[in-house]
Structure formats: structure tokens, C-alpha cells
């Protein structure tokens, strides 16, 4: 099913504008992530799609060719996975997963068969008879997913489904979720504040800030071609240079950089992995911090720009703190974005 939102906004009675008029289109089978910091309106948008919040007048929500704007949540046929799972404590794992099917008034034999099928898909067979409070966090998360998917919803909505889990488990389940969602072959919207999660799971990421979708695209596209300072900073932690542009030259405290284009009126950004420590580089600075991260080092260099510039160093002989180093940045790795459009 395709999802189309036009002019969808949400204003709370006290005048807070949680969501500015938003257009969103999600294709059949596409997995879209709504990414943004807390309070950016991503959960509000998800809850409006689910039918748990009423949007402002003039908003329109289309599921395929059905206008569902005024349809109550229980008739929208969406599956939802909640942040803290919201499993029913009065039902077993089977009872939870079968509840949506029971609401569809399916015969008992069919409910049993469908529940078993979903239990298999989510590798929950051995827990089927358990009470939900006898499950671990990861198991609960899978039961919540199984419960949402069992009634074969038209659309699957996930509200920060991994944030209640501890870090190690989160990464494991993230990859598992990415595989499962593709197996289900379902249109899905996934809300998160974690860029890694969004990029690992989604086909397309919509970055939100202050109640607006500021940019939407494939993870690679967002990473390589951010349209605003906010997106550059939020996706991939780009750093801004504090210097003066003269044509295609950027003058910094620690040297001069060549830009890929005319830099006047532009802010220049770079990511840590594109700052290379090389002998005879045009930038000179002093190593402040050296952090070993297993696959690479993260080196903090001062003196190049106002803030400490981070650089990723792969290799054995990392520089030591206090040393003076020179660095090089390839012009094509620098991102030029219009000044003032910080959007933060």
C-alpha cells in the first residue's frame, strides 16, 4: 500500500505547533525512517498516520486510494510497535500475537495457524506459552513486532522500537529488524533519533527538525549531499569550518583550503573520515586527544579552526597528544552549504 500525506499539520490547543504542514509519500513496500532529535515532531507525525492523534483541519491522509483522515485508529488496519512495547500483561505471548486476529473475528483454527506462522518468522516458538513479563527486552520487542504484523496490516509503524533496549542488544536487533521488515514485504515507517539505526534499516530517510521534514532521500544521498547545516550535522556529524572564503580559497587559522567551488556566502563542512593526517598537508595543528576505537583512532586537532577538528586515523602509528601534525582534505570532500540556513 502507498501512503500519501498532504498538508498534514498538528497544532496543540495551547498553540504549540508540533507539526508544520507536511507532505509525505511512501511507496508500496518502502521502508521510510523519520529521523530527528527529540521534540522535532517525528512521533507526532507517526501518531497522526496511525490515527492516535487528530491532525489539524485541512490535513489529508491517504492509504492507497482510501482517504483515512477521519477514520478512527481501530479501523485503519495499521500495525504499530511502541517504544516500550505495550504488551498486554494479562495475556500470554500467543494471546498478545493473536489479539489483532481475534478482533478481526477470524475462526479459532485460523488464528492458531497464523499465530504459529508469525511465531516461527520471529523465532519465538519456544516462548509462545510464556507470560510477557517473563521475557527479556529483546524477546518483548520481537513479540511486539509479531503482534503488530500478525493481522497483516496495510502499514507498519514503529515508534523508536529499539530505544528501550541496551546498547549491545540494540545493534543486534537493528540488523535483525532490517531483515525481518524486508521479509514481511510491508510498507513501514520507522521513527528514530539514532542516525545509525535509520540508515541501517530504511530505504529512505526523512530528516525532521522543528516540526518539518527538512530533507528526504536515501541514506547515501543524505550523507553525501546534505541540503542544510542541520542535516549535515545530524547525519554523520559534519563539522563546520570557521574561516573566511575568498573565491575558491578558505582561509583558516591553521592554513588554507581549496574549495570545490565559489565559497562566498557559504558555510564549509567536513566529516572526520575526510580529514587525513598526511605529511606536508596544507593545514597545521596540534593533537589534543587520541581515542582508540578498535577499527580506527579518533584524533582531535586544535589550531586549524576555532573548535577542535576531529580526524579519523586508520593505521598503526597514530600521532600522540601534543604533537604537531599536518592534515589534508580533498576539495571534493568539502560540503558547501548556504550560510545562515542552520535550521537548528
Amino acid at each position: 500500500m502507498t501512503l500519501r500525506l498532504t498538508n498534514t499539520a498538528k497544532t496543540y490547543p495551547d498553540g504549540t505547533r508540533a507539526l508544520l504542514p507536511t507532505e509525505l509519500y511512501v511507496d508500496q513496500g518502502e521502508i521510510v525512517s523519520l529521523l530527528g532529535p527529540s521534540g522535532c515532531g517525528k512521533t507526532t507525525l507517526l501518531r497522526i498516520i496511525a490515527g492516535l492523534e487528530t491532525p489539524d483541519a485541512g490535513s489529508e491522509i491517504w492509504f492507497g486510494s482510501d482517504n483515512v483522515t477521519s477514520l478512527p485508529v481501530e479501523r485503519r488496519k495499521v500495525g504499530m510497535v511502541f517504544q516500550f512495547f505495550a504488551l498486554f500483561p494479562n495475556m500470554s505471548v500467543r494471546g498478545n500475537i493473536g489479539y489483532g486476529l481475534k478482533m478481526q473475528k477470524l475462526p479459532k483454527s485460523e488464528i492458531d495457524a497464523r499465530v504459529t506462522e508469525v511465531l516461527d518468522m520471529c523465532q519465538l516458538q519456544e516462548f509462545s506459552g510464556r507470560a510477557v513479563d517473563a521475557l527479556s527486552g529483546g524477546q518483548r520487542q520481537r513479540v511486539a513486532l509479531a503482534r503488530a504484523i500478525a493481522p497483516r496490516p496495510r502499514l507498519l509503524l514503529l515508534d523508536e522500537p529499539l530505544s528501550a533496549l541496551d546498547a549491545a542488544l540494540r545493534e543486534e536487533l537493528r540488523d535483525e529488524l532490517a531483515v525481518l521488515l524486508r521479509e514481511f514485504d510491508i510498507t513501514a515507517i520507522f521513527v528514530t533519533h539514532d542516525q545509525d539505526e535509520a540508515m541501517a534499516i530504511a530505504d529512505r530517510v526523512a530528516v525532521m527538525s522543528n516540526g518539518q521534514v527538512v530533507q528526504s532521500g536515501t541514506p547515501e544521498d543524505l550523507y553525501r549531499n546534505p541540503k542544510s547545516a542541520f542535516v549535515a550535522g545530524f547525519v554523520g556529524n559534519a563539522m563546520r569550518f570557521d574561516g573566511t572564503c575568498e573565491g575558491t580559497k578558505l582561509k583558516l587559522a591553521g592554513g588554507t583550503l581549496t574549495l570545490p567551488g565559489d565559497g562566498s556566502g557559504q558555510d564549509v563542512f567536513v566529516r572526520a573520515e575526510d580529514v587525513q593526517i598526511e605529511a606536508d598537508g596544507p593545514l597545521t595543528g596540534r593533537v589534543e586527544t587520541v581515542t582508540f576505537l578498535g577499527t580506527h583512532y579518533r584524533i582531535g586537532i586544535s589550531g586549524i579552526t576555532t573548535d577542535v577538528l576531529a580526524s579519523t586515523y586508520v593505521g598503526q602509528n597514530a600521532p600522540r597528544a601534543g604533537e604537531t601534525v599536518t592534515a589534508e582534505i580533498k576539495p571534493e570532500m568539502l560540503m558547501l552549504l548556504p550560510k545562515g540556513a542552520a535550521g537548528e
Partner: peptide, 15 residues
């Protein structure tokens, strides 16, 4: 208990 979310969960399942 988080009654509101539990009910929302049931509502999305068609209750």
C-alpha cells in the same frame, strides 16, 4: 500501569 499506551496498542490492533 501505562494504561494509555496499552489501550493504544489494542486500538491499533482493531479493538
Amino acid at each position: 500501569m501505562d494504561l494509555k499506551t496499552l489501550e493504544e496498542g489494542a486500538a491499533t490492533l482493531g479493538a
